[in-house]
Design a protein around this nucleic acid. Sequence first.
DNA 1: TATCTCATGTAAGAGGTTACATGATTCG
DNA 2: CGAATCATGTAACCTCTTACATGAGATA
Lengths: 202, 202
Amino acid sequence: MSIEQSILAILSFWPSTGYDINSEVEHKAAGLYWGMSYGSIYPKLKKLEEEGFIYPIEQEEKGRKKKLYELTPKGWEEFENWLRLPPAYPKVKDELLMKMSTWHEDIESSILIGHLLKRKETTEDLLEFVKGWPTNGISYISNFGMLSIRYAEIRLEAELKWIEESINALEKNQLPKGQDPNKNTEKLLARRREAIQDEKGK
Amino acid sequence: MSIEQSILAILSFWPSTGYDINSEVEHKAAGLYWGMSYGSIYPKLKKLEEEGFIYPIEQEEKGRKKKLYELTPKGWEEFENWLRLPPAYPKVKDELLMKMSTWHEDIESSILIGHLLKRKETTEDLLEFVKGWPTNGISYISNFGMLSIRYAEIRLEAELKWIEESINALEKNQLPKGQDPNKNTEKLLARRREAIQDEKGK
DNA sequence: TATCTCATGTAAGAGGTTACATGATTCG
DNA sequence: CGAATCATGTAACCTCTTACATGAGATA
């Protein structure tokens, strides 16, 4: 619901091409909080231009053809109105957590540990990036932007801590005790075994 | 890409109706990591039944008509294959962070503080829920599930810490220093003022 | 008796991704 | 000169949400 506003936000930094915008969310800091792909970007740029929020800056021929877009006054206004609107609480879709929540004893926990190790790697890479970014000497980060960089840092560090904890618990077979007043784990395993028996009995 | 698997996962706990599944992601722990709505659930249940992953358990008439779905052997297999597949790294879309990253001095920071306060409230509510859930005496949480509950806890606590920090920095006007080797903040404010001048000059 | 919760379902469409097509320029 | 990067764009498709329609049973 706000790919368009995100594009305006990115253009507020400096005039950019569609390609630049993609790079921004693919390899740069904006990608920590947002995502979009070419299939969205170019059509949206067209739409935003038609609606008068942005306009293309004509390039005085450096050979390569490209379209730099800049905000119009109306575009600035729209962007800033959006800033003022209360943001929606982020909706999480985390496959690892979903899998973990529904994991059970009859699947080897080494596989779950593998999932955690893979997650750890990516999280470490991201954390390294996030820590290096504000001191790489070239990237632009405003003082406000630093607050959000700090968010990523805190969040990723917390995640790493949790990954360590979890791997440890799984390896030592010392999982925290859940809550199971209706013997659901037992029932689940029984239903599963029955299903497997039925299958074999066919 | 895995609404279907999520449904199988939820059905692995116990046979459920479409309504139950919705409640699970709306008001219960699964909602911390996943979301879906009726418009997805019922068509998917139909599809999963057609494909032989689930089947409806006939109800011996408690008056109210409802369709409880249970996993078939094939459904269990599909569910567990999914568990074994490496999960995708979660894609974040966080409007607050996006706004904060592109905030600038000429918008009153009190508004940003307002956004943070609102976020804080929801995060606190979630944290309270997450802490109470495993000890409410009725809900089912497996030992594996406890690990993911712990994740939510750590993550939400880290977020609250960051919110406090950020509000404090904003109120005292002591934001961390960013990185701006090309005077971008200056240029941005200049471009903006020019645009606003142009608008007035019309 | 009215409202809330339980319960199932569909239609329309917003929103987005993937994959492809195309070509210029720069770099090793 | 070949590969990587810069650059624009579209078509097909999926996925999912919103909003609506409908009604029974429970509760206050």
